[in-house]
Write a protein that binds this DNA or RNA. Structure first.
Lengths: 239, 239
DNA sequence: GAGTGGTCTAGACCACGAG
DNA sequence: TCGTGGTCTAGACCACTCA
């Protein structure tokens, strides 16, 4: 049984995908739409909430509902061996980085395998496409391993594969969840739009954790790709 | 500025995590809770919606709101080299499988690299812990490669690593999104609880796609783990 | 200040579940 | 049948944005 909000959401979705409402454009106000569909504002808002969860609409308090600009999909390449953590794009992403020295908070000591309040270098990365934020990364490196020259915008920070004593292992834990309020604000996404969260821990040959990275990617415009190749000898070496 | 629904959600969350409301228990009816907190039912429901998105509460139409039983977290191990797609658990998971022969629908031909309407064997897997569904998997295998003895409940179906001509590559694409209505129903999760979606494509040495698997895991009780080890010789061979 | 979305109310009626 | 959650209304008032 189709509820009104679904019917309205379907109609609006069609008008958006068919180009009747263009990318970046402001939709009519909720009051106008409610009148047009002869529903109450509450019902209309719940229809918009559906589209918001799909990443089609962005609500901006005080100014309106906007058709979300469909951004280039980004793919995070796992395995730690890529040239850069972010794959290359035809349109280069603009990156901003902020480096801080902190003392390891409790939730990081286990991850980095360091004593509490060890000195760390934290790098906060944000990638943008145009004006829209695209992804978020917190990277933590033990202070004595941090590069003296802070990395610039070309690639995402610490790139352990090339710069460092050889890594022995990169472990990436991927999960799906809703964004925290802070993440939703920074990424300018709906609190109801799922994000992909990647926790990457890189270990060197000595077993020391060289880097921990916490990445947050909006679910509608990013995914992660992991490729495993097998040795095609008779010894199918793995593990 | 804390809204009422957040205050209520915080309070209920605390009562759940502190054990005042126990796992599996039914909460007071929405009308009762609304009275207790002196808010309208709409406000109370929006508070419950927050908890639902966190996976703390399960709503069952017609019978009540229940504290969701915190299930064992499952970890999907990537890389295709694990003994079974699902790692072992102290409490074994119950698996149910349903095998069907179908003709490749359009959205699969590209994935499997086969002509339209090729014969495929589809295996639909559901894992359960107790009575609660835990994960969902659609596995597609070209019909002539399908094992004659349908796989049983111990491990997830087609396990290419051991049974088959050696694989050359396993590619896993991971994304985060909200569940479809069907997935939400099957997994008995809230439509607002993010799921982790894994598309795994296994290729053999001849470049033929041997298996495609579409996995859906509830975000609050599953994550995926990818481990990459590097050769610790002087030749840091990768790529 | 005018217009927008955000929160909330106090109801009504419908659909589902279990006894 | 009865109690539950699901949908919806027609407002009110508040908070934010922008000219």
């Amino acid at each position: 049984m189709p509820s009104r909000r679904h019917v309205i959401a379907d109609d609006l979705r069609h008008q958006i995908t068919s180009g009747h409402f263009k990318a970046g454009e402001r939709l009519p106000s909720e009051a106008q739409l409610a009148t047009r569909y002869t529903v109450s504002t509450a019902t209309l808002r719940s229809a918009l909430a559906l589209l918001q969860g799909e990443g089609l609409v962005e609500k901006i308090h005080g100014s309106g509902n906007f058709v979300r600009r469909p951004l280039r999909k980004i793919t995070y390449t796992g395995g730690g061996g890529a040239q850069s953590t972010w794959t290359a794009f035809s349109t280069p992403l603009r990156m901003t980085a902020r480096t801080t020295n902190i003392e390891a908070p409790s939730h990081l000591t286990a991850l980095l395998n360091v004593p509490p309040r060890s000195p760390l270098t934290e790098v906060l990365f944000t990638s943008h496409e145009g004006k829209t934020p695209h992804s978020l990364a917190h990277i933590y490196v033990p202070h004595d391993l941090a590069p003296s020259t802070p990395p610039l915008g070309e690639q995402i920070a610490v790139n352990p594969a090339d710069l460092r004593p050889p890594l022995s292992e990169v472990q990436e834990r991927v999960s799906a969840r809703l964004p925290t309020q802070e993440e939703a604000t920074t990424l300018r996404i709906s609190p109801s739009l799922a994000v992909l969260s990647v926790t990457r821990v890189s270990t060197d040959a000595a077993g020391r954790v060289v880097e921990a990275a916490l990445l947050v990617l909006p679910g509608d415009r990013a995914d992660a790709l992991f490729t495993t190749r097998f040795v095609t000898d008779e010894r199918s070496s793995k593990e």
